[in-house]
Amino acid sequence: MSWLDQVKGSLGGESASGFLERLIPGGLQAVLDQLQNSGLGQQARSWLGKGPNEPITVEDLRTALSNEQVRAVATKLGVPIDQALEILAGRLPGAVDEASPDGELRTPPPEKPAA
């Protein structure tokens, strides 16, 4: 099973934004704040606004995110750090866009307890 299949399987019926919110320590808002503080605010704002989402590179994320965050994502996904960064670079713009339909990041509802 590929890592992409693992990620899709982990989602169940959950949105990509909800999944990344749980996956990334501090959630999407923490990532947006770190991108802003790292000089990558233009990309982050493009994901919140209407119009095309600007891409972000693995190197941009490596610079903006803490080692702890990246290690946590890699561990949760069961992939090497470089692959975790590739996944984030590919999924983060769309996930933030999905979580901000009105231009404001919406916090997903809390998880339902397991039955």
Rank of each mutant, 00 (worst) to 15 (best):
M1K: 11
M1D: 13
M1A: 14
S2H: 06
W3N: 04
W3V: 04
L4Y: 04
L4C: 00
K8E: 15
L11P: 00
G13E: 15
G13A: 13
G13F: 07
G18V: 10
G18E: 14
L23W: 06
G27K: 04
L28W: 04
L28R: 06
L32I: 07
Q36W: 11
S38A: 15
G39D: 07
G41I: 08
Q43I: 03
R45A: 12
W47I: 09
W47Q: 05
L48V: 12
L48A: 12
K50Q: 15
K50G: 15
G51W: 04
G51L: 11
N53V: 12
E54W: 12
P55Q: 01
I56Q: 03
T57C: 09
T57D: 09
T57K: 13
E59W: 05
D60I: 00
R62D: 11
T63L: 13
S66M: 12
N67C: 00
N67Q: 14
N67R: 14
E68T: 12
Q69S: 14
V70R: 08
R71A: 10
V73Y: 02
V73P: 03
V73G: 02
V73F: 02
A74Y: 10
T75V: 03
V79R: 03
V79N: 03
P80Q: 13
I81Y: 08
I81D: 10
I81W: 08
D82N: 13
D82Q: 10
Q83R: 15
A84Q: 08
L85F: 08
I87G: 11
I87E: 09
G90L: 05
G90I: 00
P93D: 15
A95C: 02
D97T: 01
D97S: 13
D97V: 00
D97N: 11
E98T: 02
E98Y: 07
S100N: 04
D102C: 00
D102H: 10
R106N: 13
E111R: 14
E111L: 15
K112W: 01
K112P: 05
P113Y: 04
A114S: 09
A115M: 08
